[in-house]
Deep mutational scan, measured.
Amino acid sequence: MSIQHFRVALIPFFAAFCLPVFAHPETLVKVKDAEDQLGARVGYIELDLNSGKILESFRPEERFPMMSTFKVLLCGAVLSRVDAGQEQLGRRIHYSQNDLVEYSPVTEKHLTDGMTVRELCSAAITMSDNTAANLLLTTIGGPKELTAFLHNMGDHVTRLDRWEPELNEAIPNDERDTTMPAAMATTLRKLLTGELLTLASRQQLIDWMEADKVAGPLLRSALPAGWFIADKSGAGERGSRGIIAALGPDGKPSRIVVIYTTGSQATMDERNRQIAEIGASLIKHW
């Protein structure tokens, strides 16, 4: 067993022997301040990774656009098919120029040779490549099948209805392509620590998230040296922004954090800054 596999296998073990965790309302004060600064709703939840206990939450059962955070769930569904012998990570998928959609920095470079399922998941999570996500959605049967996968996990809230990039439209009061912070946090925890996926697939999923290259201005910008984070960000229309993450000190994750916002007129930089400040408060009061 590799060191990384050992780390993920012992996530519940280490967490069980940690000192009790206590909620700190100071972080919620910052979440509410972010709402004021952005002029928009902000949803927040913080779960203990081992027990699933909610440590703090704000608007945990209000719907927010998922945006690209759905790509972690998508690759979880792909990995479940791999575990069941219905898919192979090494299978190569070929596609054409007509398949390319807006923001496809990886797939646009491989029109000639195609990409493997493993490479597509890596591109979808680490670079948020939209064509990679659409190609992977095709392998599982489309958005409705991802929703069905989530329902089978016990998540009857999260739903995907459309493809990239239309799913980022974020129309107010439109339930399409949305989740709730509580539902997303619980589902992410199941994917990373539950028995739904094999140990190898859980490790692969967290490795992809740990290698995320496009979430630097968010929670990662607030992390002290030595902290662990595996995350996936999302951005959408109407001032929408979000991030889902597993993080913790001492090089291992111990909490799940989900943050979503929508309806702001603020710039992307300002949305990023507010999420980073929430992260800084979380870490300060850990």
Rank of each mutant, 00 (worst) to 15 (best):
Ser233Trp: 00
Val29Lys: 14
Glu56Gln: 07
Arg159Thr: 14
Leu137Met: 08
Gly248Ile: 01
Gly141Asn: 06
Glu61Ala: 11
Leu218Gln: 03
Gly85Thr: 07
Gln86Tyr: 15
Lys109Ala: 08
Phe70Glu: 02
Ser281Pro: 04
Arg189Tyr: 06
Glu166Leu: 12
Met153Ser: 08
Ala266Trp: 11
Tyr260Pro: 00
Asp174His: 04
Glu195Trp: 05
Met184Gln: 04
Pro253Lys: 05
Phe64Arg: 00
Ile244Phe: 04
Thr69Met: 03
Arg273Val: 11
Asn50Ala: 10
Met66Ile: 08
Trp163Arg: 10
Val31Gly: 01
Gln265Cys: 08
Leu188Lys: 00
Asp155Ala: 01
Thr69Leu: 03
Ala34Phe: 11
Gly226Trp: 10
Gly234Arg: 00
Thr107Phe: 02
Val31Lys: 01
Ser128Ile: 01
Val101Asn: 09
Pro165Trp: 04
Met184Cys: 05
Trp227His: 01
Thr131Arg: 03
Pro60Val: 12
Thr107Arg: 02
Ala235Trp: 02
Pro181Val: 13
Ser221Arg: 14
Phe58Glu: 05
Met268Thr: 10
Arg162Tyr: 01
Leu28Asn: 14
Gly279Ile: 05
Leu167Thr: 11
Ser104Trp: 01
Asp129Trp: 00
Asp99Thr: 07
Leu111Met: 10
Leu218His: 03
Met184His: 01
Ser254Leu: 08
Arg255Asn: 02
Pro65His: 04
Val29Ile: 10
Thr261Trp: 04
Pro60Asn: 13
Ala245Arg: 01
Lys32Asp: 06
Lys109Asp: 06
Asn50Leu: 09
Ser51Gln: 09
Ala84Trp: 15
Leu282Val: 08
Pro249Ile: 11
Asn98Glu: 06
Gln204Ser: 14
Ala215Lys: 05
Gly236Ile: 02
Arg255Met: 09
Thr158Leu: 01
Met268Arg: 08
Glu164Trp: 01
Val257His: 01
Leu73Gln: 05
Gly141Ala: 12
Glu175Asp: 10
Ala148Asn: 15
Ile244Glu: 00
Asp33Cys: 07
Val31Trp: 00
Ala200Ser: 09
Phe149Arg: 14
Gly114Cys: 04
Asp177Pro: 02
Pro217His: 09
Thr261Gly: 04
Ser80Gln: 15
Phe70Gly: 15
Ala77His: 06
Thr261Leu: 12
Val29Cys: 15
Leu89Cys: 05
Pro105Leu: 12
Ile278Ala: 02
Val106His: 15
Cys121Thr: 03
Ala246Arg: 02
Asp129His: 01
Gly216His: 11
Asp48Phe: 03
Met66Asn: 01
Ala230Arg: 01
Gly251Leu: 12
Leu167His: 01
Val82Cys: 13
Val258Gly: 09
Lys109Gly: 08
Ala132Pro: 01
Tyr44Trp: 04
Leu191Gln: 04
Arg255Pro: 01
Ile229Leu: 14
Leu137Gly: 04
Gly279Phe: 05
Ser104Ile: 03
Leu247Asp: 01
Ser264Thr: 12
Asp161Ser: 08
Gln204His: 14
Thr27Gln: 12
Gly194Trp: 08
Met67Ser: 10
